[in-house]
């Protein structure tokens, strides 16, 4: 099944914050209060040197949160969104620690805390609707669609107007690719976006180690059992030889009572 995604064109964003309000309404959160992505806000638009830069979950192709969660509370859905089930979560907060985009946030004040993050309005997508933020955007800064089509659209916009656009689609390669893509009028580093991420998915770093475990268990148990057998046998032989020697000495002792 073709995956969906969102293309966010920073050059078009006018900073009206309609996306923030629609998002807050959908989640039943209060858009007032914090201005950054937090447990009370799943999307933000911040002003960086006169440019409005939206921020939300990137919905990675191979998400770090999905890989690190010990109970599989995160899912990369076939439609593209990365979703979270609070009932599974045990609250270890490895997702907060590990997310390369620092997106998952925690309900620190709650006695039954859950992780909060954007789910690309997965339930609305299943109903055939667009994500709330896309629907609310009056400036067409957000485009929802099939991810492959969005990449083509973004490429067309860059080639059609190379003066306006920085020649880079953020999210095609970052951390192995994401379902949310960005176009910008200037280098992404200047917009406060993370440009130090590797091109490969981060879960490969831990999988490289974890995938060796079955082999390791097989060989180390064989080795340890072998070591036990050798050392045990050595001790047995030593005891046997000591007993033999004792026996001989006793025999000699009979012949030489003075010893």
């Amino acid at each position: 099944m073709a995956q969906y995604g969102i293309l966010i064109d920073i050059t078009r964003c006018v900073g009206c914050l309609a996306c923030e309000e629609a998002c807050a309404e959908k989640w039943g959160m209060s858009a007032a209060g914090s201005t950054e992505v937090s447990a009370f806000r799943n999307t933000e638009v911040r002003e960086v040197d006169g440019t409005y830069v939206p921020r939300q979950c990137m919905h990675c192709a191979d998400p770090t949160c999905v890989s690190v969660c010990p109970v599989g509370a995160f899912t990369k859905t076939p439609e593209g969104p990365v979703t979270y089930e609070p009932d599974k979560c045990m609250g270890c907060r490895y997702c907060l620690q590990a997310c390369p985009f620092d997106i998952p946030k925690y309900q620190w004040e709650s006695l039954n805390p859950a992780v909060r993050k954007c789910n690309m309005c997965h339930e609305r997508i299943l109903e055939g609707k667009q994500p709330a933020c896309v629907e609310a955007c009056p400036a067409e800064a957000r485009t929802f669609g099939i991810l492959d089509d969005l990449v083509k659209e973004a490429t067309n916009r860059i080639t059609g107007d190379p003066e306006t656009y920085e020649n880079h689609i953020y999210g095609v390669r970052e951390a192995g690719g994401t379902s949310v893509l960005f176009l910008a009028p200037k280098p992404f580093a200047e917009l406060g976006m993370k440009t130090t991420l590797p091109d490969h998915p981060l879960p490969t770093l831990t999988w490289e180690v974890l995938s060796r475990i079955p082999n390791y268990v097989f060989w180390s148990s064989t080795l340890l059992a072998g070591i036990w057998w050798i050392t045990n046998r050595r001790n047995e032989v030593q005891a046997y030889e000591a007993a033999l020697k004792k026996l001989e000495e006793r025999g000699n002792g009979r012949n030489h009572p003075t010893n």
Binding site: S67, P70, V71, M90, C92, Y94, N112, P203, T206
Partner: peptide, 22 residues
Amino acid sequence: LGKPWNVWHPIIMWNPRSVMFE
């Protein structure tokens, strides 16, 4: 743990790709 009553969840909810699970 934020939800200590779920500490047993890794027993039935598996994610072999997670270091924490292991």
